[in-house]
Design a protein around this nucleic acid. Structure first.
Lengths: 223, 223
DNA sequence: CCAATAGTGTCTCTAAGACAGTATGTT
DNA sequence: AACATACTGTCTTAGAGACACTATTGG
């Protein structure tokens, strides 16, 4: 038992794990095993531990849910602190967005998550708590960040073709992009290196790229 | 007394109140009356109450410290959650930046603040806790936001001349700006309206402007 | 008339967007 | 040969930045 002189909220981090599959932007959801909202889908997340920062909490949750470590770019998306957002007790959520390669995730329906699955991020099932709002804000944040940070390349299996990267970026941006402009911009951004390998599919082979190692995500401006 | 099954951090909001005076960018600091760091300068702030969101907490603190209400633009600047950042107990801080007209602030050295005063924001005294780091991040956030949101006009006594606005903006941006480009941009941004009044100083009078009422701060992009 | 500040317009350069055809593989 | 996909370059446009002179007042 932990006792305080003043009321303290619980602090949690929810994590919006985005990936791409079947030509759709997907979000990882868990089915809640416990009340409240038992049986409903929700964002994975968990309570802050005494020895970690909020960001570390988000990374730990990400690892526990997906087995994915060392995601460079995770983006904090506001703070959700409406007093009544959790019916049990007051819980403040600090959500983070993480973009990962979906097939590399080993979903663990362990602890309090009865089940974990990927859903169309733009057409999710009804969500517990205020998670629909969190998801919406997160998709917007990803959209804003995508032109400036290499989020989308992290959602693809490496190596990938520029066409694959463009399709994925179009999903995140929610609009179609011009092929020549896209290639110019992504190459000028200097995120990628050619691997030399080619994909030999049904037609002309495409050059394959991967993210440069140790690419520095530089400071985000906030216009 | 409040008891919980798991440890809960305290949650507070610190507020970085910026204003302009004597050709300098100033930040409001309070001298701490209580341990820890008694006698040291610190950012104003306070603990989250059970019935308010974190942003409402920041606005309340702002009002309590300065008497200023209804600041439209307050900017959240990350989350400071190092477990040991407060020696008493674990406290997570969600800082906000507020830009106000300094002379309109009625400083109240009330509650736990023994004294309140304005300091050069870029050369502050040694600060309690991790407040130096928070201040630094906040100045950077203000710099990033200034070209896109009318923060700086809110630091001036209305009405003001474009030259005054430019000088203030230069302080926030930390660099000198071209007069013609600045005027073009600020007028195209459509934040201001001419009042018709002029300042009749020692030389050619300047047109005076004020912020348009109900100016909508539109969505922040995050390049 | 001089000093001091307010105010104004154009060129350049860079980045984004629109746009269509050639190259290389598979079947 | 037909087809499907990979790949490429130029023009236009908008916004940012560099740049210097005229206008109006007070003294």
């Amino acid at each position: 038992m932990f006792t305080y002189q003043h009321p303290h909220p619980a602090v949690a981090s929810d994590i919006v794990v985005l990936g791409i599959s079947e030509e759709k932007l997907k979000v990882l959801l868990i089915r809640r095993g416990l009340e409240p909202f038992a049986g409903k889908w929700a964002l994975p997340g968990g309570f802050l531990r005494p020895d970690e920062t909020v960001e570390e909490c988000a990374r730990r949750e990400l690892f526990e849910e997906t087995g994915v470590r060392d995601v460079l770019a995770i983006i904090q998306v506001g703070i959700f602190s409406r007093p009544d957002r959790d019916p049990r007790e007051r819980v403040i959520s600090v959500p983070y967005v993480a973009c990962i390669e979906l097939d590399s995730a080993k979903l663990s329906a362990g602890t309090d998550a009865a089940e974990a699955a990927w859903f169309d991020a733009k057409d999710p099932p009804p969500l517990a708590f205020d998670h629909a709002e969190i998801l919406k804000a997160s998709l917007k944040a990803a959209k804003n960040a995508a032109p400036h940070h290499p989020l989308v390349p992290r959602m693809l299996k490496s190596p990938f073709s520029l066409t694959q990267l463009q399709s994925a970026t179009e999903l995140v941006m929610g609009k179609s992009l011009d092929k020549r402009n896209f290639r110019r911009q992504v190459l000028e951004a200097d995120w990628l290196k050619e691997t030399g390998a080619q994909i030999r599919g049904t037609h002309r082979p495409a050059q394959l790229y991967e993210l440069k190692t140790h690419h520095r995500d530089d400071d985000a401006k906030t216009p």
